[in-house]
Design a protein around this nucleic acid. Structure first.
Lengths: 209, 209, 209, 209
DNA sequence: GATGAATGAGTATTCATTCAT
DNA sequence: TATGAATGAATACTCATTCAT
């Protein structure tokens, strides 16, 4: 059993090693320009080895999303567990959580988009796909919960909580993407944090009664 | 000169013909799965001909952005030209304009992202790249103008107009992307318009004094 | 139309050029060891070009069979058309025809075996597969016809003509394969023709009344 | 020495265990589609272990031939040892023996062909290759013996006994291969036994004086 | 002996791009 | 101008084989 366990852990370690390398390479080159060989080299492994841990390139990429989504859910549920806090406080905490998630892996938004391409979906193992869908589903539900409570307590304006959650999530994604674009095109400074703050603040003011 | 001109016009017609075909093919298959041959077939031309009008695949794709951005700028400037209207009215008109732009070509957001990949930038001709940057710059400036006036007239809250414009644009992009993702993953109904409305409304409320 | 036709002919010429190269390479190395690059090099073309004329490696290989089978059928039908000749004469002519077929392309038997592997069948276009099946079917029917007539005229012993045709074909394949094997293993002389003669003679004697 | 011997026997047992697994896997998938891992799994061993008993995949496959050839020789020699029986009886017995061999391992013919590919030959150890050649040689000699006697006793027609043996063996191989092909392509019933009977009967009639 | 994780060479296939006509 | 046949570089993935444990 000790051996069994050690092997399991060793295997997990390898997976992480590959994921770390993959994250770096995908970040630099994007999904299409990144080759499995690049990733293998970065992970100081041979190409064949990658396939011992991930079925194919798509699944390796999607596994990165899984990691992020797990962290996202963790943070969101933590926010939701703040039983004593009112919806406003939670919303504030949620914003901070999402920024942390972004810092944990800036690829998050690009990953999510890649995920939905139908070709990608076809290439993932059903389990992995289900895990990802579950994580997204749970996270969204958790966010919706905050708005639901806010509306119920008449702290937020009376709109459909799901739509509010969508708008909130859109705002987050939108800012990240737009700021990323601006950065690349204009070679200018990085206003991500400021823009995100303003966007969240505006949103907050916009839904308060 | 008449001949010169006619040739010029003929050339422009061909370019449009190709762009229309490209738009259709890229929409269906995405940048990577779409082949130059697909586009040539769709345009009822031969692959070689495409290269008489566009340096390469990247430039063809980027030229689609150009078309959209031209339309975007047209609409935005039109909104800004409403001299008699107050910032609130203009903001409202701007929202409508942006939705029209989306309907003109739903690829808009995906195009913009593709654009910023460094590999793409490398493959574009400096002229085209400059044209695109100019269009984006002008559009953003025009949007900023609306917020600037709103802030100056104390109709909007006192925040940096550029940041407000960024937030506005982010909101728009974010909703489109998030709704697109949701649609693909959940096979559910399309809530794009509703979510966009809510997001804009919230934003509006959020920046009003 | 002239142009259309010339193109068609040019295309056919290319196909033949590739088939000739493929025949040589496959003969030397066998299906698995032969690479598409080998064949391209032999045909003085680039690898990509092969795919303009054949869907994939399997189909290229199968197309070799088609060529042989076409020739086989041609010869068999010619034998069968010898209306004035009696079954014995035709059988004799058939034997000679089959030997010619073998000389036309000694790969014939190996090709036929490769063909039936289920993986091969999966990779062929339905049309090609059908063409092949048709050719085999017609050829076998034509052979059966000879025996049928021989039996009816009480020249051959009274056995089921289909079984007789199978035995005849088996004999032919068997000799070729066995002699090929012997040649390779023993590095000795080539007794193919003699063995084939003896086998046919024996068969002939065996079915005569 | 007792230990030495026991080890030897243990080693032989393992070899057989692997061969049994290999036979099953190769039968199902053919040489190329079968992987060493498939065989290891089937044998409930690890891939590495296979290499302790067989130099490589080719040698493992060839060792299957060895097994069959050993059985073949055993049966043929038994037939030849029927001193009291005349050539006709022996020929009859030989036919039955060969059918048993086929049933012992239907791969026999495919194996034999694979063997002669020059790449295969290159990959075999000289010893194994020699053993195989010896077995084939002895078997053929034994078969030749029957015909020699038949010719000498003027029971069979006066042809070269080696050629007669070749024809006999060819007939056997040919029927098996042809029937195998027909079975796969036509999804029809299996006429192997009937065709083999007819072929042998015909051959028999064909060589009788 | 036995293991099985790691290797890395090997290859079919695709597709943006070119260029002779 | 327009063509479209030809190119050939590029790459995901497989699997026989090895070797540290």
């Amino acid at each position: 059993m000790g051996i069994q366990e050690r092997k399991e852990r060793e295997k997990e370690r390898r997976k992480q090693q590959i994921l770390v390398a993959a994250k770096r390479v995908f970040s630099e080159k994007g999904f299409n320009k990144a080759t499995m060989e690049d990733i293998a080299t970065q992970a100081e492994l041979s190409p064949g080895t990658l396939y011992l841990y991930f079925r194919n390139k798509e699944e390796l990429y999607a596994s990165l999303s899984l990691r992020i989504l797990q962290y996202l859910l963790l943070r969101i549920e933590h926010v939701n567990a703040m039983k004593e806090a009112d919806p406003e406080k939670r919303l504030q905490a949620l914003m901070e959580a999402m920024f942390d998630v972004y810092e944990f892996d800036p690829l998050i938004i690009m990953n999510m988009f890649h995920l939905q391409s139908s070709d990608t979906l076809r290439n993932l193992s059903p389990q992995l796909l289900q895990e990802i869908k579950d994580l997204i589903g749970k996270s969204m539900k958790s966010i919706v919960q905050i708005f639901k409570e806010g509306v119920a307590r008449k702290i937020f304006i009376d709109r459909h909580p799901v739509a509010m959650a969508d708008a909130f999530w859109s705002l987050f994604s939108g800012v990240i993407l737009w700021m990323t674009s601006k950065r690349l095109v204009s070679d200018g400074q990085d206003h991500l944090k400021e823009t995100l703050s303003l966007a969240f603040e505006t949103f907050h003011r916009g839904i308060k009664r």
